[in-house]
Design a protein around this nucleic acid. Structure first.
Lengths: 199, 199
DNA sequence: AGAATTACTAGAATAATGTTCTAATACTCG
DNA sequence: CGAGTATTAGAACATTATTCTAGTAATTCT
């Protein structure tokens, strides 16, 4: 590729290309050579920007989480009731997984050894995300529309079934896409988190 | 190790050793040399029995699922009401994840390229598991204790939050162990699946 | 029992893949 | 423009996975 004049333009490029290259395999099973070929860059460049192969995985991982979190918040923040919020979250999850299976398949992976800096970054992402969610939830919890729970449980309880279903779907273990069953998943999510005073 | 006189006694041995070897890393990041050292066997033997490295991952993966499914069914089948069954499932999940983090961390992994035969085996496992679960659920669904759902949704809806929470915990992203929050998770699971006529 | 066959083990040799290193080239800023 | 920095290139090197040939134990067959 042509010479980059901005820091890590290559980085962005690889980030676009890598999920495709590794879509069917996961980056752990994609070799550096293929990434080089697809990104049309040299070993030197790649290692200059990413350090090593896991650096690529790490960057993709964090980027995936960032996208997911961002989109979810965007879908959530405009909602005005507990129920519509929860349902919007599920709709978003289903849509995201179905549209971006490459990234989605990548997220649950534990085969990534995060560098210290990445751990910090991820922790900060999680914190900010959890905080933003919590801020949205609080008023609805206070009104009794939603259950009061430890902060770290909202996402697992609301999104868990959808994400688990998605994982099974992504690994070919069930037929209907998450989008296909999103209504059922949304209903279940809502029932699991609705408070006693929900309308 | 001493000569094996039964087919794949070595296999069993490796299956015991490998999760420890790879506990902190995941098998994709554990090198064959270390496994050889821990299992004290030769390259030839290992490849004779497993074909290649992914064969080891595959065997561990399937074994993990088999154990998980088996234990879950055992915990479930003795229950006599929808609610106690659902709660038993969650208790089992939390306990299993906390006790076997090495295997548990391994399960959601997608970094495994399954061979055709393994795919068949896994599919059959899933089928039998789904069937057994369904058989247990049917009467409770008929009584209205539990929601009627497509077969492939029971596990995601019931276990999803717990498994998602577990994943976050395993990757160090939240503090309290699944066992710690199992009561909340059980309650949420029950609410999400209880039928209108539940007592 | 002894020969023939099969299942398994061993580890050196090889192949595949990941990473480092040196030099060269483009860019930036004083 | 010239010194300094960021980036690229790709050959050399290191590491890791896999194959291959030969040998050894178990099993089967006659």
């Amino acid at each position: 590729m042509s010479r980059q004049n901005r820091t890590s333009e290559l980085k962005n490029w690889v980030m676009q290309v890598a999920p495709t290259t590794s879509s069917k395999a996961g980056i752990e099973r994609t070799n550096v050579g293929d990434i080089l070929k697809d990104a049309q860059c040299s070993v030197g460049s790649l290692y200059h920007h990413f350090g090593n192969k896991e650096g690529i995985a790490e960057a993709l991982f964090i980027e995936g989480i960032r996208q997911f979190n961002g989109g979810l918040l965007a879908a959530l923040l405009s909602r005005r009731t507990g129920e519509t919020g929860v349902r919007a979250i599920i709709r978003y999850c289903c849509q995201w997984v179905t549209e971006q299976p490459a990234l989605a398949a990548f997220l649950p992976s534990r085969e990534i050894k995060l560098s210290e800096s990445a751990k910090r970054e991820l922790k900060e992402l999680d914190r900010a995300f959890g905080q933003a969610l919590y801020d949205w939830f609080v008023p609805h919890v206070q009104k009794g529309e939603l259950l009061e729970l430890p902060r770290s449980l909202y996402i697992p309880i609301i999104c868990g079934p959808t994400l688990e279903y998605s994982r099974l779907w992504l690994s070919g273990r069930n037929r209907r896409s998450p989008d296909d069953v999103s209504a059922l998943l949304a209903e279940a999510a809502w029932q699991s988190i609705r408070g006693d005073l929900a309308p």
